[in-house]
Design a protein around this nucleic acid. Structure first.
Length: 373
RNA sequence: GGAGGGGUUCCCGAGCGGCCAAAGGGAGCAGACUGUAAAUCUGCCGGCGGAGCCUACGGAGGUUCGAAUCCUCCCCCCUCCA
């Protein structure tokens, strides 16, 4: 068993935790933010860009890689790490999010999900067993259970039924797992119903996973609810296992969740926003296409050490974006990912130095000033 | 000199008596994006605080209850023939 989690430190005033995940492909310091690389690539970035930005672990996606190019092909070519030339740790999502996001193209059944491919319309039946099988073929370091990411809004009955399915599938996934070198995480669902969330914990944890995820948040519910779920449920998860808040989030969301004891995050926000021209800084969000940057010779963020900020002006980045140049997406993504990685580095350092609460407050205060821009 | 075609809102371009401040693109301006069907999507885009009014379809007249649309003259542009 090459997967392990070590809890190194817990913050004295909050529930923030400092930890270390060991995998066959390397060490991951937590709290960690994992850039999303759905189709075997973090869009617009080369692996070396990711490394230079400080990325430790990235995501891949079961559903997408199964459809194209096919998990057996990837297995034949040496697994996902080799295939995509990313030697570091990889976490694969199970396709559970696609159960949600491809709502119109799938049918949920007791034993799995009937998907209609968004690529060519062909039909595919994804079961918990298959989801694990695909992820074993991909060779990811952390596999996720197939779940149903319950949509918002959903009635209590719908949510309970959905949760029952997720729990049942979690057991199937656990049983289907054969490779001891790959970790498998369980996922806590339960929508916006706290009782169901607690039940989910009670039912998922005993199955015995290497880590636990909080899923089904950031699907359109009010932020308050997401925070409440995080606050309530995170402490109920086993202390000695990594906690993963799926699909989250904004820098503010991450800081909040870290303060409640969450260790792992992933989100498309930094990468997608970058491609769409929204750039993060400590004090403001920059919509790079805005006319106000037309003649601005400053970098996106004076305090940023990324390749983009060290070499290019806002005016140039605006030009590239407006002109529709590929380089705009590359440079923007490098910046946003580096921004997120620095955020996580700062979070880890502040926990280490027992000043996380102060750090969090500082960041949130400067974020609050965004409204002034 | 002769024959034909054309000048529409920032640009291209439809409209060819009322439903036209004028289709559709583009440009411009702004917004959204949370386990990626996303280099995507949305809104605004003549002026004046709105119902409304004003200014607008090369220019000037005219016909008509009503004109970007019909008529007259003028000014430009393009193609072909001499």
């Amino acid at each position: 068993m090459s997967f392990a989690f070590e809890l190194l430190k817990t913050d004295s005033t909050t529930s923030a935790r400092l930890g270390r995940i060991s995998t066959l492909h390397g060490i991951v310091n937590t709290p960690v933010f994992m850039p999303v690389g759905t189709q075997g690539t973090v869009k617009a970035l080369r692996p070396e860009d990711l490394r230079h930005c400080g990325a430790q672990m990235i995501l891949g996606n079961t559903y997408h890689l199964y459809l194209r190019p096919g998990h057996e092909l990837i297995r034949t070519l040496g697994g996902l790490h080799t295939f995509m030339n990313w030697p570091g740790p990889v976490l694969t999502d199970s396709g559970g999010f696609q159960v949600y996001s491809l709502g119109a193209l799938r049918k949920i059944m007791p034993d799995g999900v009937m998907f209609q491919s968004h690529i060519d319309g062909s039909r595919h039946f994804l079961t918990p067993q298959k989801a694990v099988g695909i992820q074993e073929a991909l060779g990811s370091d952390i596999m996720m259970c197939l779940d149903e990411c319950t949509p918002y809004p959903a009635t209590e009955k719908q949510t309970a039924d959905s949760l029952a399915l997720t729990v049942k599938w979690a057991r199937s996934c656990r049983e289907a797992k054969t490779n001891p070198d790959q970790a498998l995480f369980g996922i806590v669902q339960g929508g916006t119903y706290m009782d169901l969330r607690r039940q989910a914990v009670e039912q998922i944890v005993p199955i015995g996973f290497d880590g636990y995820a909080l899923g089904g948040v950031s699907v359109g519910e009010p932020k308050k609810i997401m925070y409440a779920i995080t606050e309530e449920i995170s402490p109920l998860l086993p202390r000695e296992k990594p906690r993963y808040l799926m699909g989250v989030g904004t820098p503010e969301d991450i800081i909040y969740a870290v303060s409640r004891g969450v260790d792992m995050f992933d989100c498309v926000i930094p990468t997608r926003s970058a491609r769409h021209g929204l750039l993060f800084t400590n004090t403001q969000k920059i919509v790079i296409k805005n006319a106000r940057w037309r003649e601005d010779s400053n970098p996106i963020d004076e305090t940023c050490d990324c390749y983009t900020c060290r070499n290019y002006s806002r005016a140039y980045l605006r030009h590239l974006y407006v002109a529709g140049e590929i380089l705009a997406m590359i440079l923007n993504t490098i910046h946003n990912i580096r921004h997120y990685m620095r955020l996580m580095e700062n979070i880890r350092a502040s926990i280490q130095e027992n000043r996380f609460e102060e750090f969090a407050k500082g960041v949130l205060d400067s974020k609050a000033n965004e409204n002034n821009f």
